[in-house]
C-alpha cells in the first residue's frame, strides 16, 4: 500500500512537530509514508470564504499530487475532510466534470489520522506513553462535519500513564472558524475566552485536538493570558513512547505518581 502524508500547509509552516510526530507514529506501526513535496494546501480557506474557482484549482493540484496513492493520511480533520466535502462541488461550480470524477474517486482514500489508525490499521493502543494530565477538545469538523466519533478518546485512553480529563462543554466551537476569526473578531474572541476558561477548569497541562488551527486559536488565547497550558496535536501524544520518557517541562500526571 503506497501511503502519502498530506501534512497540510498550516502544519508544514507553523506546526512541523505535528507532522514529524505523525511520521514517527506511523513508522512505529509499520507504515512508511511518502511526502510528495509538490503538496501545498487543501484550499479550505478559499472554500469557506466562497472562492470556489480557486478551490477547484487547488483540488486539481491535490489530485495531481496525491492521485496515484492508495492512501493519503492527514493529521487534520478539517483539511482531511476537504476532498470529500468540497472538491466535487467546487469542480461542478467551474464545470469541470473530469475533476469532479477524479475527486470522487480519490476522496475515499483520504484519511484523517485517527480514522486511519483505528479503521485502516485497526489499532487503538499505539504503544504510546504520556504521563501527563490531558484534556481533549473535539473540533467542530471532527465532531460534526466529518465525525471521527469516539476514536480520539479511545486512542487517548489507551495511552500508558495518561491522566485524561473530560473538557466541560466540549461540543462548543472554540470560535476559530478560519476567516470568521478575522471577520468577526469580537464574537470569535468571546467564544474562545469561554473555551479557554473551560480548559483551565480541567487543570490539565496539555490540551489536545486533531486540528492545529483550533489549537492555535485556543493556545493563542491561553498564552496571551499568561497560562502555561500547552496545546499539542493528538499525534504528538500518540508518538511518544516509554523510551522518550515524560516531557521534561510538563508536570506529571497524578495517576503516574501514585503508581
Amino acid at each position: 500500500m503506497r501511503t502519502a502524508l498530506f501534512v497540510t500547509c498550516l502544519n508544514d509552516g507553523l506546526f512541523p512537530r505535528s507532522g514529524q510526530a505523525t511520521v514517527k507514529l506511523l513508522r512505529r506501526l509499520g507504515v512508511e509514508v511518502e511526502f510528495p513535496p509538490a503538496q501545498s494546501c487543501c484550499g479550505q480557506m478559499h472554500w469557506n470564504t466562497g472562492y470556489r474557482a480557486e478551490t477547484a484549482r487547488l483540488a486539481a493540484h491535490f489530485v495531481k499530487v496525491f492521485g496515484e496513492y492508495d492512501a493519503v493520511v492527514v493529521p487534520s480533520a478539517s483539511c482531511g475532510g476537504m476532498p470529500g466535502e468540497a472538491y466535487e462541488r467546487a469542480a461542478e461550480t467551474v464545470g469541470d466534470a473530469g475533476l469532479a470524477r477524479a475527486v470522487r474517486e480519490l476522496a475515499p482514500r483520504v484519511h484523517e489520522l485517527t480514522g486511519f489508525l483505528t479503521d485502516v490499521l485497526d489499532v487503538e493502543d499505539v504503544g504510546a506513553y504520556f504521563p501527563h494530565r490531558v484534556t481533549y477538545h473535539p473540533t467542530c469538523h471532527s465532531l460534526r462535519a466529518a465525525p471521527v466519533g469516539a476514536r480520539p478518546y479511545r486512542l487517548l485512553r489507551a495511552v500508558a500513564g495518561i491522566e485524561f480529563i473530560e473538557l466541560p462543554a466540549q461540543e462548543e466551537c472554540c470560535g476559530f472558524g478560519g476567516t470568521f476569526s478575522v471577520k468577526n473578531p469580537a464574537v470569535s474572541g468571546a467564544m474562545n475566552a469561554d473555551k479557554a476558561r473551560h480548559v483551565l477548569e480541567t487543570g490539565a497541562s496539555v490540551l489536545a485536538a486533531v486540528d492545529n488551527s483550533c489549537l492555535m486559536n485556543i493556545g493563542g488565547r491561553l498564552a496571551k493570558d499568561g497560562h502555561t497550558v500547552r496545546t499539542m496535536h493528538l499525534a504528538e501524544i500518540l508518538a511518544r513512547t516509554r523510551a522518550d520518557g515524560p516531557v521534561l517541562d510538563l508536570p506529571h500526571s497524578t495517576r503516574e505518581l501514585t503508581r
Binding site: P16, S181, V182, N184, P185, G189, M216, G220, K224
Partner: peptide, 13 residues
C-alpha cells in the same frame, strides 16, 4: 488585527 485583539500569533519555526 482582530486576531491579536484576544490572542497572540504562534511563532514560526
Amino acid at each position: 488585527s482582530g486576531w491579536t485583539d484576544s490572542r497572540i500569533v504562534p511563532g514560526i519555526p
